[in-house]
Every structure is written in structure tokens, then in C-alpha cells.
Design a binder for these strands. Structure first.
Length: 273
DNA sequence: ATCGGGACCTGCTTGC
DNA sequence: TGCAAGCAGGTCCCGA
């Protein structure tokens, strides 16, 4: 489900109710998520004070007095703040109880994760991550340097979290449309000018999506239960055969790495392929 | 090192 | 109506 904007919107929603609060109790109903939820996680989190709620890539970071809990939402995960307790369903796997309410983690497909670390920078899932797209490190020069000699299609490269973090299947297609770049272009063939344009497109689409509360296609909602509204701004994703908003050409749908890609064949010319 | 594909898991939609 | 196939916002791991 969630890409960077949805994770960031979730972070912004839950940070105010968690910051400086004490976790009274941790309930893990299922441990078989993406990786097994360790007994250490529940033991360490119980009784700690949350110092801040951060984000690195698509991981939420519950920074606390003993270390950090990393929460990944996978494809179908969500976090929800409950002021009043409700009976958990079969997909509610983790819960934190605080004095003022409960933080509940729901994840139908269980591709998400809850991990514990007391050395965040050296954690294997964090160590190998690429640059944050909304920070100063992502520039056209960085992108071109990392893409040089790579033959893989640019859409697939944008999904690699070791290059740039935060983009997923929706925003990768959207960024390429906004940059006017065909998704099958060999990465190493992008000119510096195109890399500059792509970087601007990535930053713009993610920033706008965060401002709109993320994209809700199926069931994303922020930690306070608000759905996102960016889906009305999607230019190509999910719009197969519908007219391009810019030029009226029907949007095309292809598969790359067994995943859907959407693009406008006119606005995103294939001259590099 | 880079790539392509399969794997993990559940639920919903589509087509015969 | 029923059932199988295909699809979904992520990412790790394997073999070539």
C-alpha cells in the first residue's frame, strides 16, 4: 500500500499523540510478519518513553529511551490511533497501549515488519538505503552518476531503494510522466538534462502527495483515520486507455518486472529505447 | 555487480 | 452461481 507520502502522512498523524508518551503495554497477536517479530521488541518497548517519531525511507522510527522500533507497512499495513478501544480483528497484529489511547497496526498480507534496534545507522535494513528524495542529496548529478552504464529500465531503477528511497509503483510512474521520460528508457542513456528534470518531478510529485494526505486507492488512511486525496491528481497510474490529460493520447499499460507501469506514449517518447 | 524471476500472504475482481 | 486465474501501493533472495 504505502509509499513515502503515505508513510510520511502516517508519521505526521501519529507523532503528536506519541511523542514524550510512555508505552504501558505491547501486544503482539501474530509474530509471522515479513520477519518474525522478536520477543525482544515487546520486552524492550514496554515501559519506554517515545522521544520522537521519525521516518527513514518507508520505515517509521519510534525513537525511544532504549533504542528504536522500525515499523514497515509493506503493501497493506496501516497504523491507527484509537482513543477508545475496539475489539481487534484477525488482521490487527500489533498494539501499543499508552495512557491516552492505543496505537494499532493492521496488515492483511503481513508483508510489513516490526523490528527492534539499538543501533539504527548500522541496522541491515537501514544501512543499505539510498538518498532521501526530498533532501539535498538527491540531485541530477547524483542520479546521473549512479545510473551511468546501467542498462536496466529507468522505471525499475526508480523502485530500487538502494538508489533513491520512497518511490513505489505509483509514484515511479507518475514521476516519469511528469519528467516526460519513457519508463523503458535504459537508465544509463538518460542525459544530465533528463536527470535534472526527473529529480524535479520526483520531488514535486512526492511533496504534492504529502500535502494531499497521500493516495488512497483501496484502503490507505492516516493514523487518525483520514483518507488521502492525491488519487485525483494521478496523471497516468491506473488510467489505461483513458486520454492523457495533456495531449489526449490513450494511456498505455505495460509490465516491467511483473509490475504494472502506466505512461503516455506521446508525452513520454521512446527515442532512447 | 547486475539482471530477471520467484517468493512471501490475503482478498478482491474478472472471465469462463 | 462457482471456481480459477489474475491482480494489488513492497522487497528479499536466488540462480544465471
Amino acid at each position: 500500500m504505502p509509499e513515502l507520502p503515505e508513510v510520511e502522512v502516517t508519521r505526521q498523524a501519529i507523532a503528536p499523540v506519541l511523542t514524550n508518551k510512555v508505552i504501558k503495554k505491547v501486544t503482539v497477536r501474530r509474530t509471522d510478519l515479513r520477519w518474525p517479530v522478536s520477543e525482544e521488541l515487546a520486552a524492550k518497548l514496554t515501559g519506554v518513553q517515545i522521544k520522537s517519531v521519525g521516518r527513514r525511507a518507508k520505515y517509521l522510527l519510534l525513537n525511544n529511551t532504549r533504542g528504536t522500533a522500525l515499523v514497515h507497512l509493506g503493501m497493506t499495513g496501516s497504523l491507527r490511533w484509537l482513543k477508545e478501544y475496539t475489539e481487534p480483528t484477525s488482521h490487527d497484529h500489533v498494539e501499543l497501549e499508552l495512557a491516552s489511547g492505543w496505537l494499532r497496526y493492521t496488515d492483511i498480507r503481513r508483508f510489513g515488519a516490526w523490528l527492534w534496534t539499538d543501533n539504527l545507522k548500522q541496522h541491515p535494513r537501514i544501512r543499505e538505503l539510498g538518498v532521501e528524495p526530498l533532501g539535498d542529496e538527491l540531485t541530477g548529478a547524483y542520479l546521473q552518476a549512479r545510473l551511468i552504464n546501467r542498462t536496466q529500465a529507468i522505471k525499475l531503477m526508480l523502485l530500487k531503494q538502494s538508489l533513491i528511497v520512497g518511490l513505489g509503483n505509483i509514484y515511479a510512474s507518475e514521476a516519469l510522466f511528469r519528467a516526460g521520460i519513457h519508463p523503458e528508457s535504459p537508465s544509463g542513456d538518460l542525459s544530465r538534462r533528463m536527470c535534472d528534470k526527473l529529480v524535479v518531478a520526483i520531488k514535486t510529485v512526492l511533496t504534492e502527495a504529502i500535502a494531499q494526505g497521500g493516495t488512497t486507492i483501496k484502503n490507505f488512511s492516516s493514523g487518525q483515520g483520514e483518507i488521502g486525496h492525491f488519487q485525483v491528481n494521478l496523471q497516468v497510474y491506473g488510467r489505461e486507455k483513458q486520454p492523457c490529460y495533456v495531449c489526449n493520447t490513450p494511456i498505455e499499460h505495460i509490465k516491467q518486472g511483473q509490475r504494472s507501469t502506466f505512461f503516455c506514449p506521446n508525452c513520454q517518447p521512446s527515442d532512447l529505447i
